[in-house]
Design a binder for these strands. Structure first.
Lengths: 340, 340
DNA sequence: CTGAAAGCGCTTACAG
DNA sequence: CTGAAAGCGCTTACAG
């Protein structure tokens, strides 16, 4: 029972237990080095006083921040599982006894500048990156400055290796699986719809579509692969319209995002085509949109919890750069009733 | 230009500028107390060395954590604007020279326990709460323990005042506006659809619907107000079906969430009714779902940036509990083409 | 206006 | 096994 108004510090606990401050510290940080009897005495005092070490003081002494920096993407609301990702990331980081420190990058500032400041102030021990773009300058900068980080997503560098540690979901593999499943359903003209931004990830998915079509002897030319201007619902609808009006109309669409896919579904329904029967559509991400489609949208769930756990693991050995590729999980729904 | 390998500390800057450490500190924290000439000299050294004070050391000396704790909701993915909110919150907190520390509450632990630990460790200076539930135990606990916090959302206490500082969006006001707009469009039977959880917020919206209907002389009995089991798409559809099959079928639906509203839209379309003409539907939140509806869903945008800014303002004066009610913004789309 | 002193609450070698 | 000492990198009264 602590006296009210008195801060419960190491010194206070020590006085209470009748030992020195260092012994209390040892009980906390090297319990095996202290006599069982004294240890019990000190632990009792810690319990009774509800003592918990002051984080800041401990951090200063150990030269750590106890925090992992995570920069929120500039355009919020575009990443359908940001919420889930942050929850999984925070949980994984907490298991490692740390916490996530959030920050944002002002529009007018150089992207790496805010990272540099945080490092200069020793405000974080390492960074986790997501919303990766092609040739992302952050990755090269952090790697060049030997700052610990782990990235969700590759940067698809034009030359050389991916800088630093990363974990990603195998988009090519998932799209190949989708094509195989659609083929088993009887589809022989399968189109791909992506969008221009995030080229690396989209092209990766497209590669999976193309190679599996090729393997199965299905058409896989550029006339069946469309890139919408951006990742939006209307863009998906008009991309689908273009393909359906062409001389080589597909019966199935492998679409690189749920949002685009919902647009494709809208266009398909507008034309009176029976979704999941004459026409199949698949998305990517398993966002809330995927269940807003009547009958549901077949899509690929990214294993977010596993991604987060892997990121924290990678951070444990910051000196060795490693890459981990995770499998996406096919979620079969009415829009393309695959046999899984 | 700092020597490589040498940490740039206050002491290093002082030596470089030929002054004492305290003077450097004064330049940083009380520049008016130091002679312009020495100040310029010190500032030059700071610039040249790229010095930034070590956060941890500063925090220990000033007895602050420089961090605002924010607990991520247990069920991620349910709050459509969590992403936007966190971005806005982090930005507002950064303006105040601090950062957001994320944490989660384990399923098996008492909700307030994790807050208590963070406080005991002096890991945060204050908390921001959201995903508030009725009679939220966190609010009373924090207020009882005189811990600084600000809440997005009220807890609708059964008795007494709302504990602590809060900011909320006026759901009743927004729903009243929706009813008025629908009435101007010619609708005279307007139903309300909510869901059982988050009763306080839903009931608040329902109150707005009811009072405006009453004011306009429109029916507003319980037969026109339905509460779905939960906030889900199918739930919205079946709630709409029930109302449309009843003897007093409405021509307009004021729905307490976008997700439920999309379900209502699905049911309306399934029946071949022309959305936005014979039947009007409005949602709440202006989530990505609202644009996934063909023609768009009329909905209420919550002023998230303003909410975040207000939370940080409230945190500036933790000793005085205040409440701020913000107006929602009507976003008119095809599902209910209001004159705004 | 400037700097020597004390202190923030810990941890980590290092004697005893 | 235990404790006196030094130090983490700052800030804040307080003399000079």
């Amino acid at each position: 029972v602590a006296e009210p108004g008195v801060a419960v510090t190491l010194r206070y606990v020590a006085k209470h237990a009748g030992v020195s401050r260092q012994t209390v510290s040892n009980v906390l940080n090297a319990p095996d080095r202290v006599d069982p009897v004294t240890r019990a005495k000190v632990e009792a005092a810690i319990m009774a006083l509800g003592y918990q070490p002051n984080r800041t003081a401990r951090n200063l002494a150990t030269r750590q921040a106890g925090l992992i920096g995570y920069c929120l993407a500039r355009r919020p609301g575009h990443n359908p599982f940001m919420d889930t990702f942050l929850h999984a990331l925070s949980t994984a980081v907490e298991v490692a006894g740390r916490h996530v420190l959030l920050f944002t990058a002002p529009e007018d500032l150089d992207d790496t500048r805010v990272y540099a400041d945080l490092v200069a102030q020793r405000a974080v021990d390492a960074f986790v990156l997501s919303d990766t773009v092609d040739n992302d300058p952050r990755h090269t900068w952090l790697a060049d400055h030997e700052i610990a980080f782990a990235s969700f997503g590759r940067t698809w560098p034009e030359q050389g290796e991916q800088p630093g540690s990363w974990v990603d979901v195998d988009g090519a593999g998932s799209c190949a699986e989708l094509v195989a499943g659609l083929h088993a359903l009887g589809h022989s003209r399968i189109a791909f719809i992506g969008w221009r931004a995030h080229t690396g990830a989209v092209l990766d998915r497209q590669r999976g579509w193309r190679s599996e079509c090729e393997r199965l002897g299905l058409p896989h030319g550029d006339e069946l692969a469309v890139h919408a201007d951006s990742d939006c619902l209307d863009c998906g609808a008009s991309a689908a319209a273009g393909l359906l009006d062409s001389g080589h109309a597909p019966t199935a669409f492998v679409v690189a995002s749920d949002l685009l896919a919902v647009g494709v579904v809208r266009e398909v329904k507008r034309r009176g085509l029976r979704l999941g029967h004459e026409i199949a559509v698949t998305g990517f991400d398993d966002s809330v949109l995927a269940t807003s489609v009547d009958g549901g949208l077949t899509t690929v769930r990214q294993p977010i919890e596993e991604v987060a756990g892997t990121l924290v693991e990678l951070l444990a050995t910051p000196w060795e750069a490693r890459g981990v590729l995770l499998r996406g999980e096919l979620v079969s729904r009415g829009s393309a009733p695959l046999q899984v």
